[in-house]
């Protein structure tokens, strides 16, 4: 792991077009500003991990469950 020391308003640049800047730091945490190209997704790690786990647990549940289909049909508003 690369470890660098940065002061407020100092940044690091990663690859082509990704910049991470320290906006503020204090006892409660560090506030970062991230600039990245639109195709690069930036997420807080804990929520990303939560979504990955949710996707993994949902995969393979592709077998239709009739009771669920029936219940959802009850929610469809008549057009």
């Amino acid at each position: 792991m690369l470890v660098v020391t940065r002061k407020r308003n100092e940044a690091i640049v990663i690859g082509d077009g990704i910049e991470v800047k320290v906006l503020r730091h204090g006892r409660d945490g560090v506030r970062l500003g991230i600039t990245a190209p639109p195709q690069v997704a930036v997420h807080r790690q804990e929520i990303y991990d939560t979504i990955r786990a949710a996707n993994t647990s949902a995969a393979g549940s592709g077998v239709p469950v009739q009771s669920l289909v029936d219940r959802l049909r009850g929610r469809v508003e008549p057009s």
Partner: peptide, 13 residues
């Protein structure tokens, strides 16, 4: 790995 997902329109919920 050819994952398969059931999905629903979130506005239905």
């Amino acid at each position: 790995p050819e994952a398969s997902f059931l999905t629903v329109d979130p506005r239905l919920l």
